[in-house]
Design a binder for these strands. Structure first.
Lengths: 336, 336
DNA sequence: CTGTTAGCGCTTTCAG
DNA sequence: CTGAAAGCGCTAACAG
């Protein structure tokens, strides 16, 4: 900036004013400064500027477990879009589910003075946030509530979606409905299981533990679990899956075994509507999640009159998409 | 930091030394400082530190067109992993293919003093980089070479992969092989088309323009184009697709029309091996792309003896995965 | 309208 | 081993 000032034969202060768009600069000098900026290819140091002004850095930190999972990728995009709209940049860290890395990322982010953090928690407990978070750094968790810590969060209607999907299967005549889910320790896993159970109970059916497989994290283990269900003497005629990897795993099992069953599951995916079995998808809008998360952060950033709103919980609604054939006529084998 | 110093009853300088891990501090004072840091929950301001030291910011900027596309998501993950290994953070911008946003992102990144930029160019020309890039900010483009600008790049073996895949289709007896591709203006689109043509020529076959559809960017248009191919009097018995969206679109068309054909295409995808038609996939390692990109950047960052290596071009090799049935026996309809 | 002074939080340099 | 002084690039707050 000094160089620009020297070349334009003005003080650095005048350069600063021109760059900020301050009107109180004579056209003549303004032109000289602009010419000098041009010639030198000068670019104002955003960091020094923010530093001096003491305001935010204009960055939001995002911590996800697996960017390769379409769900998180889509989520990241939604958040990026939402914060970009407010002129903020996104700093992304992938933890691969490692809670140590999650914690380290929080540390690093707070050291970098991000304006806020969006966190998809990996572990079962986020109490560590209390020690890591400096006062005034807002965090919003996404997809899972912050266990052991007070913070805003944006959730999907896990219970409702699972309840509705299972209900649709029941309405279509299915009576033996399998369950393929991520571990019960994961919030979404337990909530979606609750929804599944509630729908069955409401239909006057009990939970057949033989039909329930919980704990699959990846597609391969989901496929194995699905194969076990299909090997039962009385296999399920439909399977509810708590996430895309389980749904995909279930479909793989069906194909490999040459079997058929109606599939229902959370998260839409690319070929859901052209598979060889009916697929019911519990869908929701990742952009909305991003938007709401950004909103929650923004409200904590701008110091409005109210000092500190209590932790808020936003729930994004789900919709059911019936792909392929309709819900699937109750198959010919008469369960129970 | 001053507060910590005050609480520990030492000078700020001593606090700085402790935090940096400088050994030249008496154990007694060190302990006092550490206690104060603990009590105050103090976190050193990384920005101010970098600022003063005048070195890098420890951040890399990544610009992609569509994070929701599994290809870019996987790429982003590969790059994140590679730079994280060197202790760098990733700042991500999604341009949605908008070159104005791409350019704005470059400006913003340079203002933020990122240490390097990884760019997946959206437009046909990146000559603008010359005016936007301050001296010393290294850029490496990925997936496409930097048109109109000198810079390192990491490419996939587009030609070779397309050539090999088409060759496999020919070897399996296919003679009418359709082509579904992104626009010729896109580097990958034209390279992969070249590979397709080369394989056909080598087999003594000409290019039948009726079988070639170029210009599909999304799944829906790819499906429409595929449907046109299938509606031909002599439809192709196999289709080569230049990217995952075209492959998926082609499969959708097959399913909706109740037809069959062997599919071949760039980019592996989730259910490729359990579809109802044989699928040949041109695969490559996104992690390798990220690693190589990070390497290229690093070499430009650390001022080694050699002042400025010339722009380098790294090509990542591809492999063919035969999914589903094998390449697919030449179907019964005898093309030409 | 323009320039000078001072300081954001930290660290380098140089004296103790 | 410890601290005081100076300054990274920029901009509020004041003078002129």
């Amino acid at each position: 900036m000094k160089e620009v000032a020297a070349l334009a034969e003005v003080s650095p202060m005048t350069v600063s004013r021109v760059l900020r768009g301050d009107t109180a600069v004579s056209p003549d000098r303004r032109a000289r400064v602009e010419a000098a900026v041009q010639r030198l290819g000068y670019r104002r140091n955003t960091l020094a500027r923010n530093f001096r002004q003491g305001q935010g850095t204009g960055t939001i930190g995002l911590i996800v477990t697996n960017l390769a999972n379409p769900f998180y990728a889509r989520l990241a995009l939604g958040i990026e879009a939402a914060v970009a709209e407010e002129g903020l940049r996104l700093m992304i860290t992938n933890t691969a589910g490692d809670t140590a890395r999650e914690r380290a990322a929080i540390r690093d982010f707070s050291g970098r003075r991000v304006d806020g953090v969006v966190l998809v928690p990996a572990g079962a407990d986020q109490a560590y946030l209390a020690e890591e978070l400096p006062a005034g750094l807002p965090v919003v968790t996404v997809a899972r509530p912050p266990a052991g810590h007070e913070a805003d969060c944006v959730l999907v209607d896990d219970f409702g979606g699972a309840y509705a999907a299972t209900g649709r299967l029941l309405a279509a005549g299915h009576r033996r409905i399998g369950f393929l889910g991520n571990p019960p320790s994961v919030y979404t896993g337990s909530e979606r299981y609750r929804g599944y159970c509630a729908a069955l109970h409401e239909a006057g059916l009990g939970i057949d533990d033989a039909l329930v497989k919980r704990g699959q994290e990846d597609m391969a283990s989901a496929e194995a679990a699905a194969a076990e269900l299909l090997a039962l003497p009385q296999p399920p005629t439909a399977v509810f899956c708590t996430n895309n990897r389980n749904t995909l795993g279930a479909y793989r099992a069906l194909r490999h075994l040459g079997r058929s069953a109606t599939l229902a599951g959370f998260d839409d995916f690319d070929l859901a509507d052209v598979l060889s079995v009916p697929v019911l998808v519990v869908d929701y809008d990742p952009d909305e999640i991003g938007r709401r998360a950004a909103e929650l952060l923004r409200e904590r950033l701008s110091p409005t009159g109210t000092p500190a709103p209590p932790p808020r919980r936003v729930v994004v609604r789900t919709t059911i998409i019936a792909h392929g054939a309709d819900e699937g006529p109750a198959p010919d084998q008469s369960g129970r």
